[in-house]
């Protein structure tokens, strides 16, 4: 056997030794492997015998549950993240069965299918980071979805004062109605939007509009400190992030509306 052959055998044995099976239920075993989330918890993977002799790999729904500790997993069901999720799953032949990620394979393809299944779980798990750096476009989509779900018809998007500002030069991303002092909420992904929001807040003040002004940042630390200060001074409230804190933000706004 060649030296390369020996190395291949050694690698094959080492990789095989890193994977164990643990009895889980009838016709089902849990696959214990070194692949894990960023918090040290290993992926949950089951191997099931199917009646037709094939096999099924499943996470039992654990992956989404785990991701929900740190993010709003409902955000994966729509918008840009849904497209990323669909790509991560379809590239590796994995189905999303209303929360359970599963892949069916046969004995000849079991090894390759297992590795592809793990790759799919890693890519799905990494979607939590799209909330910040990787997909900037999701922030505005998340903002809109969050306020639509929380306030329904009370949320008026891309609002402007039709009487004083017929050309819409001072837009508000979302006006939450329902009281004599509605909330004017600005979605702020960066410096330019922060400057625009500052001008609108100042104009609302000049018009003496009785509104509670709120800034929701994608990542407040990314905004220039002077730009941020100019907005924070006239604004009534700011939130440094939206991601993972959607309920907190909307509950706060619900609370300040009489």
């Amino acid at each position: 056997m060649s030296a390369n052959g020996s190395a291949a055998d050694a690698l094959s044995r080492a990789v095989g030794a890193a994977v164990e099976l643990r009895p889980s239920a009838r016709d089902e075993q849990q696959v214990l492997a070194p692949f894990r989330f960023p918090d040290g918890d290993h992926f949950v993977i089951y191997l099931r015998d199917l009646p037709d002799g094939r096999y099924e790999l499943s996470d039992g729904g654990h992956t989404y549950m785990h991701m929900s500790y740190a993010m709003d997993v409902d955000a994966l069901q729509s918008g840009p993240r849904a497209a990323l999720l669909e790509g991560a799953l379809s590239n590796f032949g994995v189905e999303d069965r209303e929360g359970e990620l599963a892949s069916v394979t046969d004995e000849d393809s079991l090894g390759a299918s297992f590795l592809e299944y793990v790759q799919a779980l890693i890519q799905v798990s990494d979607l939590r980071y799209t909330t910040r750096e990787q997909v900037r476009s999701t922030f505005l989509d998340d903002f809109r979805r969050t306020f639509e779900e929380a306030f329904g018809e009370r949320a008026q998007f891309d609002y402007h004062d039709a009487e004083r500002d017929p050309k819409g030069e001072y837009p508000v991303d979302c006006l939450v109605n329902g009281s004599s002092r509605p909330a004017a909420v600005f979605a702020i992904p960066g410096n330019d939007r922060c400057k625009d929001a500052t001008i609108t807040v100042m104009q609302l003040r000049a018009w003496e509009r009785p509104v509670f002004t709120v800034g929701v940042f994608e990542a407040q630390e990314d905004v220039n400190s002077r730009v941020l200060a100019r907005f924070s001074n006239p604004a009534d409230k700011t939130f440094a992030y939206l991601s993972g804190q959607e309920d907190y933000v909307t509950e706060y706004i619900r609370g300040i509306l009489p």
Binding site: R36, V44, Q245
Partner: peptide, 15 residues
Amino acid sequence: SRLFRLRRLNGLSHQ
């Protein structure tokens, strides 16, 4: 808006 996770008690389901 950041939630800092102080403790997490897990069941018996994974390594």
